[in-house]
Amino acid sequence: MKAFIVRRMILIIPLLFLISVISFATILLPPGSYVETYVQNLERTGFIMDQGQIEAIYRQYGLDQPAALQYVLWMSNFLLKGEMGRSFIYQRPVKEIIMERLPMSAAIALVSLAVTWLIAIPIGIYSALRQYSVGDYIATVIGFVGLALPNFLLALAIGYWVFASTGRAITGLFSIEYKGAPWSIAKFVDLLGNIWLPIVVIASAGTASLIRILRATLLDEKNKQYVTTARAKGLPEWRLIMKYPVRVAINPLISTIGWTLPFIVSGEIIVSQTLGLETLGPVLLAAALGEDMFLVGSIVMILSSLTVVGTLLSDILLAWVDPRIRFERTRV
């Protein structure tokens, strides 16, 4: 098991490296350099920089260096000091902005993942055990619609429905009176009252495919010999279904975290933008529209790296719960 974890940790390093290169490439990608856009933006606000100041900025970010060196500079700043450059839209260090918004983004993504599972597992089990029942058909239909409905549309629709039935518009994670307030129980309750909508919306997108996978595997597993064996031992039906085939059928779900997580992070960004949540999504979008590329590149790198780390954790979790995989992979 230890060997397996170490091996997976080592394998993740080239992945993270590639991600950082891609993220840095997006910073350099737009025509016109960062500083040019920066200077233009300042000029628009009426602040004209002289040549000396401009050159100072170039030196500060090492932008007069070749791209490879710039990358090394950016990465070493990030790895050693956690610095990722400066945002000219917000006029603040990128690090500060990300640290402010990342916890909420991560929390929403993780809770959404949990909710996806909470919805998908019971429905998937029900669908498989009562194959071709009315409930199974309903689950299939809802699953298909969930698959086809872009989540920003669902967010819009539910938001509209809440507005129409209660007259309250969900815009943001907090009601106005709590927006700048320090954390308190009342603020947390207020958060709960607002956060369920984005979480349900984000979760709904992933449930359909999870239900399908769980249903298919469980249909396969529940007719296997070991289930009959367990039945022949005299185990109560419910307990044996949960202990044997369901446990086996849930394992492939763990391996799907690898692609559900990126999906959820993507959904989180778009839903946050639709509902005006105070997460990284709207910042990323504003930065992209304003060509604030250090901010864009940094957010992309952080989100992608965290997703990859999440995938790694799910792999380790899978090996932990499934002795077969543990057995196979430590031997390889």
Binding site: T26, I269, I270, L303, V308
Partner: peptide
């Protein structure tokens, strides 16, 4: 890398880079 990376952020970054 491409599979484990969320695509919306990458799409956003790349389209932002379009002139």
């Amino acid at each position: 890398v491409l599979i484990s990376v969320p695509d919306i952020p990458i799409w956003i970054a790349l389209s932002a880079a379009l002139p």
